[in-house]
Design a protein around this nucleic acid. Sequence first.
DNA 1: AAATGTGGAATTTTT
DNA 2: TTCCACATTT
Length: 738
Amino acid sequence: MTPLLANLNPEQLAAVTLPHVSALILAGAGSGKTRVLTTRIAWLIATGQASPLAILAVTFTNKAAREMATRLSTLTHANTRGMWIGTFHGLCNRMLRAHYRDAELPQLFQIMDTADQLALIKRLYRAHALDEERYPPRQLQWFIADSKEAGLRPNAVEAGDDFARAQVEHYALYEAMCRREGVVDFAELLLRSYELLSGHDAIREHYRRRFSHLLVDEFQDTNVLQYKWLRLLAGERTAVFAVGDDDQSIYAFRGANVANMQHFERDFAAPDQPVRLIKLEQNYRSHGTILDAANALIRHNRSRLGKNLWTSEGKGEPARVFAAPSDVDEAAFVVDIVRNLADEGVPLSEIALLYRSNAQSRVLEHALFGAGLPYRVYGGMRFFERQEVKHALAYLRLVAAPGDDGALLRVVNFPPRGIGARSLEQLQDHARGAGTTLWQAACGGVVGGRSGSSIGAFVRLVEKLRQEAGALPLPQAIEHVIEHSGLAAHYANEKEGQDRLENLQELVNAAENFLRESLVAASAPGGAADAADEGATDPLTAFLAHAALEAGETQAAEGASALQLMTVHSAKGLEFHTVFITGLEEGLFPHENSLNEFAGVEEERRLMYVAITRARRRLYLSYAQTRMLHGQTRYHVASRFLDELPKELLQWLSPQRRRAVDVDESEWGALPAAAPGYAQATPPAPAWRVGQNVRHAKFGVGVIVGAEGRGSDARVQVNFRDAGVKWLALEYAKLEAA
DNA sequence: AAATGTGGAATTTTT
DNA sequence: TTCCACATTT
């Protein structure tokens, strides 16, 4: 056995060494998914079955793509640069740059992020006097993304009613606007690439011949269009290696289609070769109890391919459950336990505090701050989304492609240079009348008066920047633009402009890094051949695409050991020694909105499954009976997910003044106390909960749809089959389970 | 053009 | 409650 294949378990080995067939790898949490994916590629190359040029590996995030590339470079001596490894969007961008004419795009098309897109839609509304009240811009944005991700152009969208017809019309106007300005949104990269392949036999055949192996990470997260793209790219002789976990599908709300996993076997089978299915169920991350809990929970989902995680390690400790009277008490509990873990020597960075929604971090942060515990919150502003960076990028976009009206509007009067709303109004009117971009209108000098001269000065500024920056290497060009656009001086005068200036310097550094990496890629053997059949893109446009496609780290400072606070969604793919899952309340987790969504609770349950499987050694589950939400105190019952966990895996805790005296001598009795000040408790009696069927003497049968209050104030809202929705005080209404 | 006020909404998120 | 977008003021 070669070292490459050493220490693989039988299933992993089978997956890595599959013959040239398409395969679906059902890879459970912590089953070594990334390792299998990268080792598969390394093995294909090492055994001479595939050249690096014949491999395309696609992921969802840049982080995953980078990780794959990094691991690969340690696994194989062959150069990995000729490979197409990247995100769906990154690879589509690459393809569209290479075939921009056939794709009917301008050579220097610019990529809009979601914020740019919304700004464009708002301009569209103003230009066509569309009704923002009746058709909220955000809704149109969603509609467009949705349509594109289904592979539908405006002429193909079916509109059943007037509202939908209006949206389709707006969609068409939006497309015309994008075309005129030479910009594309994220979904457009996918759709355009798909159309390029479907509409040009020669191009499609070229890529089909070239890529003998397509490898897909996080396959459960693919949307309809991504699936169609993969099908198109996969020829008769292409082996597609799709790795995913249907139980970890938590992005249906943004178009992910788990059904792709079910369809895969049907759609990717070769005439003589059925799709191979391999399950990776051995988990290398967690102790047994954690996996048992996860397995038991996810068994409550009806639609699954079916999978059970196991480990050769011991069962470990029970999951500790804490019912806090309030959100503040819950946070205090977390602080108590964390202090204790820290004393035990668990690094803070190995402890994660998870919650369903970002708003929940506040109370936790407050308690941690008060306790002097360092923490890091994930989510929030990313580097390339900062306003000063956006401004600098807008100047650069104007320099690269002046037809970009969004970029022009962003900086035409920033720093302020006396171009007010009136002159812009005029400029926009002229552009609209002549059917040109703002830049063209501005160059035409059609706008008279004083404002015209300011706009003329702006045009001259941008052209000067283009001339001067064009002669410089990318980082210096960016530095030049920051300096001579007036951005630097503007922020230097601003009270809190120091951070912004630093970020602008950081942008120059980012360009340096970017340039260095692309030089390595181009100089690598194979890289050159690759570039030849693609047609090179100029460094500035490439960097701007990079900035749009990779928003950058959320938080710059990785820094010292700190607690990790994040939503369950952003915890996917990570692991920690200890995990706290907080806010386990009906209405929060599962979120109340999910109760009305199709298959919503199942997705919430998968989310809970993801949360549980992040823990290696210890798991704390907590909920608060009272919580401040939207400025009001809300009362919640414990999450149904707690009920769905086998009680023998749980150890309920209650605060104690004295050391525990009434510790139940169950099988966990001998295990270490959860923390000083907390002792084992008996679980609370099952409470009425949302979703439960009940019977009332007078109103008949119904289902609980809401609950609030505690003790003698407790009330439930019941939707009766015959009597409608009613609030009932539990103290008086004699409800029974039905 | 900045500063201040008001109303409404308030899962989850990558590219 | 808190944040955001938008409107009005200064």
